[in-house]
Write a protein that binds this DNA or RNA. Sequence first.
DNA 1: CGTGCTTTTGAATAGTATCAAGGCCGGTGG
DNA 2: CCACCGGCCTTGATACTATTCAAAAGCACG
Lengths: 238, 238
Amino acid sequence: MTSDNIIVECGKCKNTDCYIKLCDSHWILLVNNKKNQIVFKKGQHIFLEGHLIFGVYFIQEGKVKVNSSNLDGKKQIVRLATDGHILGHLGSQGETYPIEAVTMEDSRICFFDNQTMHDALMANPQFTFNMMMFYSKELRKIEQRTKFFAQMTVEEKIIFALLYVASTFGISKKEKALNVIISRQDLAEIAGTNSEQISRTLTSLNQQNLIHIRGKEIIMSDYQGLKNCISRYKISLF
Amino acid sequence: MTSDNIIVECGKCKNTDCYIKLCDSHWILLVNNKKNQIVFKKGQHIFLEGHLIFGVYFIQEGKVKVNSSNLDGKKQIVRLATDGHILGHLGSQGETYPIEAVTMEDSRICFFDNQTMHDALMANPQFTFNMMMFYSKELRKIEQRTKFFAQMTVEEKIIFALLYVASTFGISKKEKALNVIISRQDLAEIAGTNSEQISRTLTSLNQQNLIHIRGKEIIMSDYQGLKNCISRYKISLF
DNA sequence: CGTGCTTTTGAATAGTATCAAGGCCGGTGG
DNA sequence: CCACCGGCCTTGATACTATTCAAAAGCACG
């Protein structure tokens, strides 16, 4: 990542996926002046469950997990997000976050307040249209995840979780290693199980040569084989 | 419902929630002329899984389930929709539906093709903004459902399903009966279990006086009590 | 070189799905 | 009007999967 204390202007940002770029050039300048860019270290909270929604966060560069916990403290990762993705939905006045966002690596995040967003959206149809399509697409993705959660066995859920991580954060070209170091606990919170099951299942998948474990890295040796394991669910995401 | 063979013009439509109404008046006329209104009988398909996406469906009046099936034929209801709701996301060129929509009652549905929608969205910021907020809100809702699916016991999932049905389709004021006749199988496909478990659990909830069963009707006698059963999940939907 | 955290493995328990059978109800036809 | 049929619902018994509890091993860090 680029140095922490230099703010990346929207005009100079290399993130080609960022929707802000769809605004008219004078709006990009305007919005850029209003934005607040923060670099979060790994494991920090971007926002907390229950806090008031003041605006929206765009990930300039980084890896983030969005999770939701119950009163027993049990957590569930509902979404993974990376460069160009949007965090913490646009909220109406007085709404609070039902979820929290935590960085999984050092991440550069841009914050835009509700008013600025609203004004920019009203003035830039292409921007609004693409934002709408983003939400629409995320909705379709999670609708599929819902089905899988309801029907899959634990092994299948774990395979799905691995593929979801790979599709969001990517894998290294040569070795197909996941581009992120992820704990058993985090995988459990994606798959909706516990870390013991993750351990057991990863060992089993390793023996089947579907994946390969090297230290803290997970290598997706047989990507297609993993997909085949869950092909009866007709997944269209990976 | 109003008579089947009379088309309700957008200008005369009584549905206050329909986003089309947020367009400029001349756009409403224009869009109205392009729309295709169809009345579906109970149990009919509005669109099928795998079909090409040509446009978007708005529910003028009715009750619809959106479901997704795997190759074994096992289904999962991912969303319930009623008056003013949108079905079948806006699609890019060549995309197909990963889900299907089926009417649960006679329903009047308005269809708008992709091109018309795109033009209307680009020309009417308020319309686009609200469409975006609709998707954003549905995304938040389903993010919560994801957590519940991953963590709830079967009884809790069934209570959640009942509350979800009640919040979408409503309950009668006097008796708190669900405003829809829903089969055990449909409830199972919402909760992600089987009809036997639904049967057992409804009997049990009946004995605990949390609900009351009268023929095919389900009466939500103790709405607050049901909510309390799943309060540890901090639900903000009902 | 301990201390604490994560991971792994094992055994016991609990929860859920599946299988099977019988009951209820509405519709159909004699 | 009643008997029969089929679909949906209910209930019970059984088998299995996954969670929980427990303990040991591995690893990072001061």
